[in-house]
Amino acid sequence: MSETLDHIASAARVDAPPAIMLDKVNKWFGALHVLRDVSLNVALGERVVVCGPSGSGKSTMIRCINRLETHQEGKILVNGIELSDDLKALDDIRREVGMVFQSFNLFPHLTILENCTLAPIWVRRMPKKEAEELAMEYLTRVRIPEQAKKYPGQLSGGQQQRVAIARALCMKPKIMLFDEPTSALDPEMIKEVLDTMVSLAETGMTMICVTHEMGFARQVADRVVFMDRGEIVEMGAPNHLFENPQTERLKTFLSQILRGH
């Protein structure tokens, strides 16, 4: 019985077009080859955690997905739309893809509420009142509705990152990208941000998350991707990957991560 259900579920995933498709993507910074033949399909509703040593190209890869970086070879499709120099297509993609940055990147001259309503009002053409209600709803979900009138500089790092998540969600994206969302935080604030991300994962959001938080990966990831020197070295279910690393590189990485914690 459960086998059939599993089968149906995976069949549904296979039939639906992948939310994100990277096909032999290559990128160079000058002479430095930072992405080497990276191919990755992410299904709708899938949660992928990307890990790897620093400089392995993981941030560059997810920044290519909403074209904050441009790739030089290969194909990237988001929701079936190919990323190219076509600005109209890029607008369509960015509207559907939310991003959370390591350094929060809130707009310091706008209040928390204005940070959240700016894009819905101007990009989605939502009436101001509706955008504010939506923003309050998401700020409540990240548990900081009482800070709405403050400026980002008055909030702690963890609070700022939760605002950044709410700001991205206000655009009602289909896909969320997280670029090391907890790396700039003090240890006591990491949990509050991870909790927010876990509850977001529970809503069925498609997520790609670059992080070193292995506990988070075990808890929510459908798949973990390990990158090193611009390549995808291994990927698989988190328990499988962490317990049976196939390559020396992953073994070394895991031992370093575990020692660090």
């Binding site: 707009f107 001259h109 655009m171």
Partner: peptide, 26 residues
């Protein structure tokens, strides 16, 4: 910081929206 430009881009703001609401005021 470059992050301000990137955050505005990632939200899908157009060039003039980004410039008028985010970049110039700061």
């Amino acid at each position: 910081s470059k992050g301000q430009y990137e955050a505005a881009d990632a939200l899908g703001l157009s060039y003039w929206q980004k410039t008028g609401f985010i970049i110039l005021p700061q």
